[in-house]
Design a protein around this nucleic acid. Sequence first.
DNA 1: CATATTTAAGAGTATTAATTCTTAATTAAC
DNA 2: GTTAATTAAGAATTAATACTCTTAAATATG
Lengths: 145, 145
Amino acid sequence: MKVLSQTSKYGIRALLYIVSNPSTGEYVSIGEITKELNLSFHFLTKIFRELTNKGILYSYRGPSGGIALAKPSDQIMLIDIVLALEGEDYFDNCLLGFPGCGVEKPCPVHNFWKGIKEDIKSHLCNTSLAQLGEKILAEEVRLFD
Amino acid sequence: MKVLSQTSKYGIRALLYIVSNPSTGEYVSIGEITKELNLSFHFLTKIFRELTNKGILYSYRGPSGGIALAKPSDQIMLIDIVLALEGEDYFDNCLLGFPGCGVEKPCPVHNFWKGIKEDIKSHLCNTSLAQLGEKILAEEVRLFD
DNA sequence: CATATTTAAGAGTATTAATTCTTAATTAAC
DNA sequence: GTTAATTAAGAATTAATACTCTTAAATATG
């Protein structure tokens, strides 16, 4: 059951690393993140580039450069990241792939699936990086192996 | 948001065609189904082969052969088809791809995601081909374009 | 038994997603 | 200004999924 692409998963995990590791400097280097989370440096760089282009991150080149959240972590919602990386049409899908499935021509599981998508969407809309970061810091959950 | 593979989507749609088109003969030919649903004959044949191997369908070769449900349609649940085609570990996933995410080491969205998966699973467990076929026949929803 | 119809099996190809690699641009520090 | 550290950009590769094609086997009918 692959709901999010690797791109989104890595992106979110990396942002959670940032918010749960209050750093000394203004910017966090991508190299540090990928070392800690054991991700591909080049792949995460590409993912972050997308988030920078979408205005979710700032980036800065050169020594002690890196990336930083463009907004306070309590104002960055999971939905922002998911839509930026998966596309704005992320929720426009029919579970069974019925051509033209919609309100006028619903597939046999349309209403059920609509409800599930609303649950997921509302959770992503109401969950900030800060909230998840706090959970990690409170050791209710773990970021690493 | 791709939750089911094309394999599962086509498989379920094709089975719904069968249950919503009470046929004259014992077997329905794959060619008829793919013509009506505009699917690839060879691809659906491969999908049905898997369902036949898993005991969900019977198949019969030769003139007026085809495939048939191995059980009454009210005893075939969506979950049976999904697990047969996606694998038994379909629900063993972490939304964010945290390595080792589980009860002892939950990721920051573990409990939320667990709940969603349970909702989906229970719906798939409680929905039979017959139920969806009835919806289609009652024209509450549509199978075709 | 010859022919037509149908599924079985799996090799082969194409498309998409994931990952890696190469080169360039920016910036700090000496 | 030279060097080192860092992200930017996107080409190139690999892997996974989706789809197509070929050949074989089974079966009904004349």
